Amino acid sequence: MYQSTIKKSVELVGIGLHKGSPVKLKLEPLEANSGIVFYRNDVDVAIPLTPENVVDTKMATVIGKDGNVISTIEHLLSAVYAYGIDNLKVIVDADEVPVMDGSSASFCMLLDEAGRHELSEPKKVMRIKKEVVVQEGEKYVKLSPSPDLNYDFTIKFPHPIIKQQDYSLKFTKQAYKDEISRARTFGFVQEVQYLRSKGLALGGSLENAVVLDDKKVLNPEGLRYSDEFVRHKILDAIGDMSLIGMNFIGNYEAMAGSHDLNHKLTVELLKSEENYEVIELVGEKTKELEKAYA
């Protein structure tokens, strides 16, 4: 199995969640061993996708360099990671990635339009060798060895619509598109009001998020899945874990996980090479993984 990029450049325009202004996003091919690189063409700054460049994880995963940031990268990265794209230049003309409909479905369609181009270098993946856990109270995120890739997530909210939700994804690209990609980000109306008072979430609306009051979902079309909330948490986790720099083989498990805990998990994982090994996918052993990204 070989590294990949996209066949052709593609672009779209959408609203930024926090500023509420239009943002132009363009994806361009990159050569092998380049990784995922973000570039802000309004300030001429490139920001490589590494845990060291994460500068904020409160509301979203935010990367930065020299005081320049790009926010809300996780939904796009979730799609890129699910498609197995290894090398890509992501260009934006503002400090955030457009939110689109609050899911990663638009980015999946963009990647389908771009197509996949196989390069000449072997694909590298990280195989989890030891259990790695980050825990804060009852909340935790964990990676453990597994022959394939799985995501298991549990959330608990004291809300009559959400309550406790559990979801397990045995990863394939197709399973991701069918089960995860359409799940939207969500929030509570009182939180939205508070954020707007702070000059944030100015682009947030029922068009790009599931919004709840104390008792119900306010979106007139309702939910896309009865458990859309936990599915979106898996979508976020897949994007956040891309900060390790490559796809991985192992089991991800979370109880009330967050962008912050996911970031801390990537840092903890990379602290010691006892936790993982990087392998090149060559020969017969790659056949099953190739199917997963077909």
Rank of each mutant, 00 (worst) to 15 (best):
K123L: 12
V92G: 04
Q174I: 06
E121D: 09
S103L: 05
D86S: 09
F107W: 06
E131I: 07
K170N: 14
E131A: 06
V97K: 01
M126Q: 10
I85M: 03
D178C: 04
K65I: 06
V90A: 03
G115P: 06
M100P: 02
L149C: 11
G64V: 02
T61E: 13
T172P: 02
I91R: 04
P158G: 09
F153T: 02
K173N: 11
D148K: 14
E74V: 02
E136I: 05
Y194S: 09
T154K: 12
K173E: 05
T172S: 12
H159A: 10
I128G: 01
K163W: 05
A82P: 05
A105V: 02
L88N: 03
E138F: 11
I180N: 11
Y140G: 09
E136P: 03
T61H: 09
F171P: 07
K65W: 10
Y151D: 07
G102D: 00
I85F: 05
V80R: 00
D178F: 02
R116F: 15
I91N: 02
Q164S: 13
I180V: 07
V192A: 08
A175E: 12
Y140I: 03
V97F: 09
P158K: 11
K65M: 13
T185H: 08
F188N: 04
V97L: 06
K65S: 15
R184A: 02
V192P: 00
E136V: 07
P98E: 01
P98S: 02
